[in-house]
Amino acid sequence: MALMRIGEFAKEIGVSVQRLRDLDKNGTLKPAVVSPKGTRYYSDEQLYQYTHQNQSHRKVIGYCRVSTNGQKNDLETQISNVKTYMIAKGYSFEVVSDVGSGIN
Protein backbone atom coordinates (compact mmCIF):
# COMPACT_ATOMS: atom_id res chain seq x y z
CA MET A 1 0.00 0.00 0.00
CA ALA A 2 1.52 3.29 -1.14
CA LEU A 3 0.96 6.28 1.10
CA MET A 4 0.92 9.96 0.24
CA ARG A 5 0.98 13.02 2.44
CA ILE A 6 -2.11 15.15 2.83
CA GLY A 7 -0.84 17.81 0.38
CA GLU A 8 -0.22 15.27 -2.36
CA PHE A 9 -3.59 13.62 -1.80
CA ALA A 10 -5.39 16.98 -1.79
CA LYS A 11 -3.78 17.91 -5.10
CA GLU A 12 -4.71 14.56 -6.65
CA ILE A 13 -8.39 14.85 -5.76
CA GLY A 14 -8.64 18.60 -6.37
CA VAL A 15 -9.45 19.89 -2.89
CA SER A 16 -7.59 22.01 -0.36
CA VAL A 17 -5.59 20.58 2.52
CA GLN A 18 -8.00 22.33 4.89
CA ARG A 19 -10.94 20.54 3.23
CA LEU A 20 -9.24 17.19 3.89
CA ARG A 21 -8.69 18.17 7.52
CA ASP A 22 -12.39 19.02 7.79
CA LEU A 23 -13.37 15.70 6.20
CA ASP A 24 -11.15 13.93 8.73
CA LYS A 25 -12.72 15.85 11.62
CA ASN A 26 -16.29 15.02 10.65
CA GLY A 27 -15.41 11.40 9.87
CA THR A 28 -16.20 11.52 6.15
CA LEU A 29 -12.69 10.71 4.92
CA LYS A 30 -10.26 9.44 7.52
CA PRO A 31 -6.56 9.11 6.62
CA ALA A 32 -5.17 5.59 6.31
CA VAL A 33 -2.38 6.40 8.77
CA VAL A 34 -1.70 9.23 11.21
CA SER A 35 1.88 9.50 12.43
CA PRO A 36 2.69 10.06 16.12
CA LYS A 37 3.33 13.73 15.25
CA GLY A 38 -0.08 14.02 13.56
CA THR A 39 0.91 13.87 9.90
CA ARG A 40 -1.95 12.44 7.85
CA TYR A 41 -1.22 9.86 5.15
CA TYR A 42 -3.70 8.63 2.56
CA SER A 43 -3.45 5.40 0.57
CA ASP A 44 -3.63 4.84 -3.15
CA GLU A 45 -6.72 2.71 -2.49
CA GLN A 46 -8.41 5.74 -0.92
CA LEU A 47 -7.47 7.81 -3.96
CA TYR A 48 -9.03 5.23 -6.27
CA GLN A 49 -12.19 4.96 -4.17
CA TYR A 50 -12.60 8.72 -3.83
CA THR A 51 -12.09 9.50 -7.51
CA HIS A 52 -14.34 6.71 -8.76
CA GLN A 53 -17.03 7.28 -6.14
CA ASN A 54 -17.33 10.97 -7.01
CA GLN A 55 -16.80 10.61 -10.75
CA SER A 56 -20.49 9.93 -11.41
CA HIS A 57 -21.39 13.31 -9.91
CA ARG A 58 -18.97 15.29 -12.05
CA LYS A 59 -19.44 16.54 -15.55
CA VAL A 60 -16.53 17.70 -17.68
CA ILE A 61 -17.09 20.65 -19.99
CA GLY A 62 -15.28 20.76 -23.35
CA TYR A 63 -15.01 24.27 -24.80
CA CYS A 64 -14.45 24.79 -28.52
CA ARG A 65 -14.16 28.21 -30.17
CA VAL A 66 -13.31 29.80 -33.47
CA SER A 67 -12.97 33.48 -34.25
CA THR A 68 -15.10 33.88 -37.38
CA ASN A 69 -18.05 32.31 -39.17
CA GLY A 70 -15.65 31.32 -41.95
CA GLN A 71 -14.02 28.84 -39.57
CA LYS A 72 -17.17 26.80 -38.85
CA ASN A 73 -15.60 23.71 -40.43
CA ASP A 74 -12.70 24.06 -38.01
CA LEU A 75 -15.19 24.33 -35.15
CA GLU A 76 -16.87 21.08 -36.18
CA THR A 77 -13.45 19.39 -36.28
CA GLN A 78 -12.64 20.73 -32.79
CA ILE A 79 -15.97 19.47 -31.43
CA SER A 80 -15.44 16.04 -32.97
CA ASN A 81 -11.91 15.78 -31.51
CA VAL A 82 -13.03 16.88 -28.05
CA LYS A 83 -15.91 14.39 -28.06
CA THR A 84 -13.58 11.58 -29.12
CA TYR A 85 -11.17 12.46 -26.31
CA MET A 86 -13.92 12.67 -23.67
CA ILE A 87 -15.41 9.34 -24.70
CA ALA A 88 -11.97 7.69 -24.64
CA LYS A 89 -11.39 9.00 -21.10
CA GLY A 90 -14.82 7.79 -19.97
CA TYR A 91 -15.97 11.23 -18.87
CA SER A 92 -19.53 12.36 -18.43
CA PHE A 93 -19.32 15.50 -20.53
CA GLU A 94 -20.93 18.34 -22.41
CA VAL A 95 -19.37 20.32 -25.25
CA VAL A 96 -19.90 24.07 -25.42
CA SER A 97 -19.00 25.84 -28.65
CA ASP A 98 -18.70 29.47 -29.66
CA VAL A 99 -18.10 31.51 -32.77
CA GLY A 100 -16.43 34.79 -31.83
CA SER A 101 -17.04 38.08 -33.50
CA GLY A 102 -13.58 38.32 -35.05
CA ILE A 103 -13.08 41.68 -33.35
CA ASN A 104 -10.02 42.07 -31.12
Rank of each mutant, 00 (worst) to 15 (best):
M1D: 03
A2S: 13
L3N: 02
L3I: 03
L3T: 01
M4F: 05
R5D: 04
R5Q: 05
I6T: 15
G7E: 04
G7F: 05
A10L: 08
E12Q: 14
E12W: 02
E12G: 01
E12N: 09
I13N: 08
V15W: 11
V15P: 11
S16A: 10
V17I: 15
V17M: 01
Q18I: 13
L20P: 00
L20Y: 03
R21M: 06
D24I: 06
G27D: 09
G27K: 13
P31M: 11
A32W: 00
A32S: 10
V33L: 11
V33N: 04
S35V: 01
S35P: 02
P36F: 00
P36I: 04
P36M: 01
G38E: 06
G38M: 05
Y41R: 06
Y42W: 08
Y42G: 05
Y42Q: 07
Y42E: 08
S43I: 05
E45N: 07
L47W: 07
Q49R: 10
H52M: 11
H52L: 07
Q53H: 12
N54W: 13
N54E: 13
Q55W: 09
S56K: 15
R58W: 09
K59Q: 15
K59N: 12
K59C: 14
V60R: 04
I61D: 08
I61H: 11
G62M: 13
Y63Q: 10
Y63M: 13
Y63N: 07
Y63E: 07
R65S: 14
V66A: 08
S67P: 02
S67N: 15
T68E: 01
T68Q: 05
T68V: 05
N69L: 12
N69Y: 08
Q71V: 02
Q71P: 01
N73Y: 08
N73E: 15
N73T: 14
D74T: 05
L75V: 10
L75P: 03
E76T: 10
Q78K: 12
I79T: 04
S80L: 08
N81V: 08
V82S: 03
K83I: 08
T84P: 01
T84Y: 09
Y85V: 06
M86Y: 10
M86G: 01
I87H: 11
A88W: 02
K89W: 01
K89F: 04
Y91F: 15
Y91A: 06
S92H: 11
F93M: 02
F93C: 03
E94A: 07
E94D: 11
V95K: 02
S97C: 07
S97H: 13
S97D: 14
G100Y: 03
S101W: 04
G102T: 00
G102Y: 00
I103F: 06
I103G: 04
N104W: 06
N104G: 05
